[in-house]
Deep mutational scan, measured.
Amino acid sequence: TLKVHYKYTVVMKTQPGLPYSQVRDMVSKKLELRLEHTKLSYRPRDSNELVPLSEDSMKDAWGQVKNYCLTLWCE
């Protein structure tokens, strides 16, 4: 499951381990945003700071799954 905080919160079913490009595509379609305006980030467990997502950091983000849910933020 993927939970995304935006102006409102959406929850989507997804497969764990998807690459950033696929996750961003899913989120942009769900929120009806243009792909270039979809910026995603996540919060590591040991931090209060949001970390921007990229293809490289997506593996780390999937490591933050809690209760089968990855929580992301969209700007």
Results as ranks from 00 to 15, higher is better:
residue 2 L to E: 06
residue 2 L to Y: 08
residue 2 L to I: 15
residue 3 K to S: 00
residue 3 K to I: 14
residue 3 K to L: 07
residue 4 V to T: 04
residue 4 V to W: 03
residue 4 V to R: 04
residue 5 H to K: 09
residue 6 Y to W: 14
residue 7 K to N: 14
residue 9 T to R: 01
residue 9 T to N: 07
residue 9 T to M: 02
residue 10 V to E: 04
residue 10 V to I: 10
residue 10 V to G: 00
residue 10 V to M: 10
residue 10 V to W: 03
residue 11 V to K: 09
residue 13 K to P: 15
residue 13 K to N: 09
residue 14 T to M: 10
residue 15 Q to L: 10
residue 15 Q to M: 09
residue 16 P to F: 15
residue 16 P to T: 13
residue 17 G to A: 05
residue 18 L to C: 05
residue 18 L to N: 07
residue 18 L to F: 05
residue 18 L to E: 01
residue 19 P to Q: 04
residue 19 P to G: 10
residue 20 Y to M: 01
residue 20 Y to C: 02
residue 21 S to P: 08
residue 21 S to K: 12
residue 22 Q to S: 10
residue 22 Q to K: 14
residue 23 V to H: 01
residue 23 V to P: 00
residue 25 D to N: 12
residue 25 D to R: 10
residue 27 V to L: 01
residue 27 V to W: 03
residue 28 S to W: 05
residue 28 S to E: 03
residue 28 S to Q: 05
residue 29 K to F: 06
residue 30 K to A: 13
residue 30 K to Q: 11
residue 31 L to D: 07
residue 32 E to L: 07
residue 32 E to Q: 13
residue 32 E to P: 00
residue 33 L to R: 03
residue 33 L to V: 02
residue 33 L to G: 06
residue 34 R to S: 14
residue 34 R to N: 13
residue 34 R to Q: 15
residue 34 R to T: 13
residue 34 R to I: 03
residue 34 R to H: 10
residue 36 E to S: 08
residue 36 E to N: 02
residue 36 E to V: 00
residue 36 E to P: 00
residue 36 E to F: 02
residue 38 T to D: 03
residue 39 K to R: 12
residue 39 K to G: 10
residue 39 K to F: 09
residue 39 K to L: 12
residue 40 L to N: 06
residue 40 L to P: 00
residue 41 S to L: 14
residue 41 S to C: 08
residue 42 Y to L: 01
residue 43 R to V: 10
residue 43 R to Y: 08
residue 43 R to A: 11
residue 44 P to T: 14
residue 44 P to W: 05
residue 45 R to E: 13
residue 45 R to T: 11
residue 45 R to C: 14
residue 47 S to Q: 11
residue 47 S to D: 07
residue 47 S to R: 11
residue 48 N to T: 14
residue 48 N to H: 10
residue 48 N to A: 13
residue 49 E to G: 09
residue 49 E to H: 08
residue 49 E to Q: 12
residue 49 E to T: 12
residue 50 L to N: 08
residue 51 V to A: 05
residue 52 P to E: 15
residue 53 L to A: 05
residue 53 L to V: 00
residue 53 L to C: 02
residue 53 L to F: 04
residue 54 S to C: 10
residue 54 S to A: 06
residue 54 S to T: 15
residue 55 E to R: 02
residue 56 D to T: 11
residue 56 D to K: 13
residue 56 D to S: 12
residue 57 S to C: 12
residue 57 S to A: 10
residue 57 S to I: 07
residue 57 S to F: 04
residue 58 M to T: 05
residue 58 M to N: 00
residue 58 M to S: 00
residue 58 M to P: 00
residue 58 M to V: 04
residue 58 M to F: 03
residue 59 K to E: 15
residue 59 K to R: 13
residue 60 D to W: 04
residue 64 Q to I: 06
residue 64 Q to E: 13
residue 65 V to R: 09
residue 66 K to H: 09
residue 66 K to L: 05
residue 66 K to I: 04
residue 66 K to F: 07
residue 67 N to S: 09
residue 67 N to Q: 09
residue 68 Y to G: 15
residue 69 C to K: 00
residue 69 C to Q: 14
residue 69 C to Y: 06
residue 69 C to A: 06
residue 69 C to T: 15
residue 71 T to A: 01
residue 72 L to H: 05
residue 72 L to I: 09
residue 72 L to G: 00
residue 73 W to G: 05
residue 73 W to Q: 10
residue 73 W to N: 04
residue 73 W to L: 00
residue 73 W to V: 01
residue 74 C to N: 04
residue 74 C to S: 06
